[in-house]
């Protein structure tokens, strides 16, 4: 057996002088989803930021394909997509421009047609040419989700992806996650809302008990 693609060992995290969690570990392989649970302020977001490489853990190491992620920034950057609390879109640009710019910064080419299709899929066909600043919060979240789809990453790290979405939006995210995992992708997700992922290989991880 090959070891898991993403392995976290003995992670610990401190905020201020407070220890949020320690001795946290898991393995994740292709076609698996990891649901991170825990109450407010228990360190879910901190954990996800460690996993995507934005913060350094106080102890422990995260490995991607056997390499610590801080030494494999190039590969990990290509194969991982992170969706945080902020949507990561510029208010002054249109959704299409946002998607294409994000792709260019990630080292990918995204043609007009693909960007348009992705935006149609997330239900934004009518708002493609207006600046993102006039979109509602939920609509901007959808732009970010379209970005996630076009990024073509293997591993998705999603921090509260359902925030601000309506019922259709929630169903859409569930479908996105399901499709991605069934196609052999990996998803790490936190949410306070119920997320219906039946039929998938799920793991759960509790943070800060």
């Amino acid at each position: 057996m090959t070891p898991g693609m993403l392995i976290a060992n003995d992670l610990a995290c401190e905020r201020g002088e407070r220890l949020l969690f320690k001795n946290l570990g898991f393995e994740l392989e292709n076609g698996e989803a990891l649901l991170v649970r825990g109450g407010n302020g228990r360190g879910k977001t901190s954990l996800l930021r460690i996993l995507c490489g934005l913060s350094a853990p106080a102890a422990g190491v995260v490995r991607w394909r056997g390499e610590p992620i801080n030494q494999a920034q190039e590969q990990y950057g290509r194969e991982m997509s992170y969706l945080g609390h902020a949507n990561g879109i510029k208010d002054d640009l249109t959704p299409v421009e946002n998607l294409r710019l994000a792709a260019a910064l990630g080292g990918r080419d995204l043609d007009m047609a693909t960007a348009t299709t992705a935006l149609e899929q997330v239900g934004l066909s009518r708002c493609m040419d207006i600046p993102a600043r006039v979109l509602s919060f939920g609509q901007r979240r959808r732009v970010a989700l379209a970005g996630l789809m076009t990024a073509g990453a293997l591993l998705w790290i999603l921090d509260e992806p359902l925030t601000g979405l309506d019922v259709n939006g929630v169903a859409m995210v569930e479908q996105m996650i399901r499709d991605h995992v069934v196609a052999g992708g990996m998803v790490i997700v936190t949410t306070h809302q119920p997320l219906a992922l039946d039929g998938l290989t799920q793991k759960t991880l509790s943070v800060g008990d």
């Binding site: 934005l54 992170y82 945080g84 902020a86 949507n87 879109i89 990630g106 080292g107």
Partner: peptide, 12 residues
């Protein structure tokens, strides 16, 4: 707006 995080996570 979170774009800085995304740029930090880019492969470069």
């Amino acid at each position: 707006d979170g774009t800085l995080e995304q740029m930090l996570l880019s492969p470069y």
